[in-house]
Nucleic acid binder design. Structure first.
Length: 264
DNA sequence: ATTGCTTCCTGAGCGC
DNA sequence: TGCGCTCAGGAAGCAA
């Protein structure tokens, strides 16, 4: 499940591998994976940069094309010379030097959109601030959360509130903050809001330095696993460090884990 | 405006 | 061995 730290790791890996390469072809191996939203179709150009916004990965080229990729749950980008290593090939980006960027995705939810540069801003305008930037702060979050009846867990998963958090990290952040995922968002105190922001930064930064979390499918571009799964404190666990049983519940269709002793 | 349910999809894991 | 079932979940779309 690539969330912000995993996408960030992939972006950093890709930058080293494909910056400067000329894209000759983008091939779809499954309908619905790629959508072309350019005003004119034609060449793609040479890669000038790779960026991330939330869980979206953006590839920019020198002829003002942006390729926006969302990996959803099982999407992977694999850099190689052949497609042989791909079990679930959905698309590929071919370069003039005969290397490839393979888009492999078991569950086929991932998407690639080819668009004119600048259009990405409109596409992504719904996203909330980046959790590691200063505009994700107490003032912002308390305004957004004010009067909300939904559980804090659901609010933090909402990409319009803050961009890039997914199930695993929200579960870990709330555990570190000592806040139950079932708490009503609008009733959180100032202190708790600050704690959420602080722990969000802490967890994400640790996860990025671990190259992400590999539970099942996630791999970086060079096919390496992340390491942060070794530091998870509640997600997928049965017992908390304090000795109490971890509770497992469903919220908004996703599994929440929390310690009733440490999280109030 | 907000909330919550359903949908998309495949593979792993389980009980029988 | 193999069948059928449940579960995993990000985000869009829709209904209340």
């Amino acid at each position: 499940m690539p969330e912000l730290p995993e996408v960030e790791t992939i972006v950093r890996g890709l930058r080293k591998l494909v910056t400067g390469k000329e894209i000759t072809e983008i091939i779809s191996h499954r309908s619905g994976t790629i959508s072309e939203e350019r005003s004119e179709t034609g060449e793609y150009g040479r890669i000038t940069g790779i960026r991330r916004r939330g869980k979206y990965l953006l590839i920019d080229t020198d002829i003002q094309i942006t390729i926006m990729i969302h990996l959803r749950m099982t999407g992977k980008l694999i850099f190689d010379k052949t497609e042989a290593g791909s079990q679930h090939l959905r698309a590929e980006i071919r370069f003039s030097d005969k290397t490839l960027l393979i888009f492999d995705d078991v569950r086929t939810f991932g998407k690639i959109i080819v668009m004119d540069s600048g259009k990405d801003v409109e596409h992504l305008s719904f996203l909330g601030p980046e959790p590691l930037e200063t505009d994700f702060n107490e003032h912002y979050l308390s305004e957004k959360i004010k009067g909300r009846k939904a559980p804090v867990k659901n609010i933090l998963l909402d990409q319009r509130i803050v961009a890039g958090l997914g199930n695993i990290y929200v579960v870990e952040i709330l555990h570190r903050a000592g806040i139950s995922p079932e708490r009503e968002g609008g009733l959180l105190t100032r202190k708790e809001i600050n704690l959420i922001i602080e722990k969000t930064r802490e967890v994400l930064q640790e996860a990025i330095s671990c190259n992400g979390t590999t539970i099942s499918d996630y791999r970086s571009v060079d096919d390496k696993s992340g390491e942060f799964q070794n530091f998870l404190r509640v997600y997928g666990k049965e017992k908390c460090k304090c000795g109490a049983e971890i509770k497992k519940i469903k919220q908004a269709g996703r599994t929440s884990y929390f310690c009733p002793n440490c999280q109030k």
